[in-house]
Design a protein around this nucleic acid. Structure first.
Lengths: 130, 130
DNA sequence: CCGCATCCTGCACGATACTG
DNA sequence: CAGTATCGTGCAGGATGCGG
């Protein structure tokens, strides 16, 4: 069957290239820890490595380093090394990081708002299955 | 205002329990495939299993089933089985699912808007490292 | 204090094959 | 066509120890 083998608008009006890039970007950005770190930095402003770790109980040191690096690479945080001993490294949200925080706010709010609904849905589903 | 070392509200005004639940919820919801499926169902309305699969090139059949199940459990999609042969199963977004789509829209828009900025940041970072 | 390197484990996910 | 079951594996991520 012929159809449109290569029709570019598989996703409607969305450019597939943009789609791919956006998807990739969101995948990183929607990462488990990224949101929380954004939250923390947004709430408390510039923070030292250890201070951030304290505020994100579940995270391992490895993941914190890794996530912060990725965020730095994406331009979400600014990493400042103070040339003193003992070493002192501070992280702060860039404007870009702040703006992402704002954008994510919608999802955050949605989650808070619909928590009950989702839990009810889960319960109903589990009963039907169990 | 002076610091409150012992204050339970480490996260400011946010209730830690809500924090945990929200975090958990977002982790599932912000899943790699969930967003795309929401996008597809939002764009094209009710769709059959195979039709969805066609629209999400990268996904395996296993992951599609799994993700749809999870979405159903969370009350994001309605699964309708038509008792015919060959089997016909259709998925559509619930109101809850639609609302999540809206909420995510902000992040989506952010990603589109700041794609260039992020890529530039990455490039700069990679050069500095490489 | 910061964070890199190493090792190790579990499980997320793909591939494949089989039912209703 | 839709979905489950099984197996194999790559890699995410925790624990630990060192180096600047």
């Amino acid at each position: 069957m012929a159809d449109h083998p290569e029709s570019p608008e598989t996703y409607g009006e969305i450019d597939p290239r943009v789609e791919a890039l956006v998807h990739d970007l969101i995948a990183q950005v929607a990462d488990k820890w990224t949101m929380i770190i954004i939250e923390v930095l947004h709430d408390h402003g510039e923070q030292r490595f250890t201070r951030i770790a304290e505020k994100v109980p579940g995270i391992s040191q490895k993941m914190l380093t890794q996530t912060l690096r990725q965020m730095e690479r994406n331009g979400l945080v600014k990493r400042t090394v103070h040339p003193v001993v003992p070493p002192k490294v501070e992280y702060r949200l860039t404007d870009l990081g702040e703006s992402l925080g704002e954008a994510f706010c919608g999802v955050w709010t949605w989650a808070e708002t619909h928590l009950g609904t989702v839990e009810a849905a889960r319960k109903g589903f589990d009963e039907k299955v169990g």
